[in-house]
Nucleic acid binder design. Structure first.
Lengths: 138, 138
DNA sequence: CTTTGACCTTATAGTTACTATAAGCTTTAT
DNA sequence: ATAAAGCTTATAGTAACTATAAGGTCAAAG
C-alpha cells in the first residue's frame, strides 16, 4: 500500500486536475510516475506532498521554474536555508510591485468612473480619457 | 500629409513595438493599415490615437477583447455612456480582487520568511510550510 | 554609384501554465 | 453484459505577445 493514488484520486486530494498533473510530469516538476499493471499512474504519499508543495507555491505566485529551483534546493538538505529565503524575498518584492501597479490602476479607474455623467457617449469623458495623451503609456 | 507614421514611428510615438502593432492589426483591434508605394504601412493621427487608447486600456488591465468592445461602444456615439462605465466597474472590482489576492500572498510570504532561522535546509521551516497541509490549496 | 545599415515585409514558432478535444483502453457499477 | 466513469496518449487552443528567419527597401556615407 505504498502507492495509494491514481491520478484522479491525487487530483481530488490536491485540488488539481488530472490533466494538470500529467502536465507537471511532462514539464518535469513532477517525476515520471510509476505505473500499475494496466499502465495507470500510481502515486505515493510523498508524491502527493510534492504536488501539494507545487500547488501551494503556485498559489503564492512562484513560477514553475521557480518551483523547480526550490525543489532542487530542498533536496540539498545540507545547503543553507538562506538560498530559499532569498527566493522568498525576491517573490515578496515582486508581489509588492504588482500590488502597487494594481493600486495605481484602481485609482485611475476610480477617476475614470467619476467622469461618467450618465449622458451619451459623445459627451462621455471615459473614452476620451482612455485615449488621452495626458498620462504616460507603458 | 495625412498618413504621418511608419510602423516604427508609430511604435516610438506610442511606446509599442512594431511587431506588437502588426499583431494588433492581425487580431483586429487595429484596422488594416493602408500602404505606401512600396507596401509599407502608413498611419494617420487618428490611428495613432486609437493605438494610444488600446495601450492605455491594456495598461489599466483591460483585455484585448474588452478593448474591442470598448471601441465598438465608442463608435456608437448615441448610446448611453452607462455601458462604458459598467465595463470600468467590472474591471475595477476585478483589480480589487487581484489586490486582495496579492495581499494574502504577501502575508503568507512574510510569515514564511520569518520561519527562516538561517540554518541548513533540513531545519528550514519554509520548505516545510510550503508543502504543509494546514492551509487551503487552490 | 554602390554598399552598408536601418527599417520594412511576411510567416512561423516559442513563451507560460494550463485547458480542451479526440480516440481508444480499463475498470467499476448496474 | 453493457454502460459509465476513469485511465491512456497526442495534438491543438488560450492570452498577449516575443523571437527568428528570410528577404525587400531606403537613406546616408564612401
Amino acid at each position: 500500500m505504498n502507492k495509494k493514488f491514481t491520478v484522479g484520486q491525487l487530483a481530488t486530494a490536491t485540488g488539481t486536475k488530472p490533466v494538470t498533473i500529467r502536465y507537471y510530469e511532462k514539464v518535469g516538476v513532477l517525476p515520471s510516475a510509476s505505473r500499475d499493471e494496466s499502465g495507470y499512474r500510481r502515486y505515493s504519499v510523498a508524491e502527493r506532498d510534492r504536488l501539494l508543495f507545487i500547488r501551494r507555491s503556485r498559489a503564492l505566485g512562484f513560477s514553475l521554474d521557480d518551483i523547480r529551483e526550490l525543489l532542487e534546493l530542498a533536496d540539498q538538505t545540507e545547503d543553507s536555508c538562506a538560498a530559499v529565503d532569498a527566493k522568498v524575498q525576491v517573490q515578496l518584492s515582486e508581489i509588492r510591485r504588482r500590488i502597487e501597479d494594481l493600486r495605481a490602476m484602481e485609482n485611475e479607474l476610480k477617476r475614470l468612473s467619476a467622469c461618467c455623467n450618465g449622458g451619451v457617449i459623445e459627451e462621455c469623458r471615459i473614452i476620451e480619457s482612455l485615449s488621452g495623451r495626458s498620462t504616460t503609456v507603458k
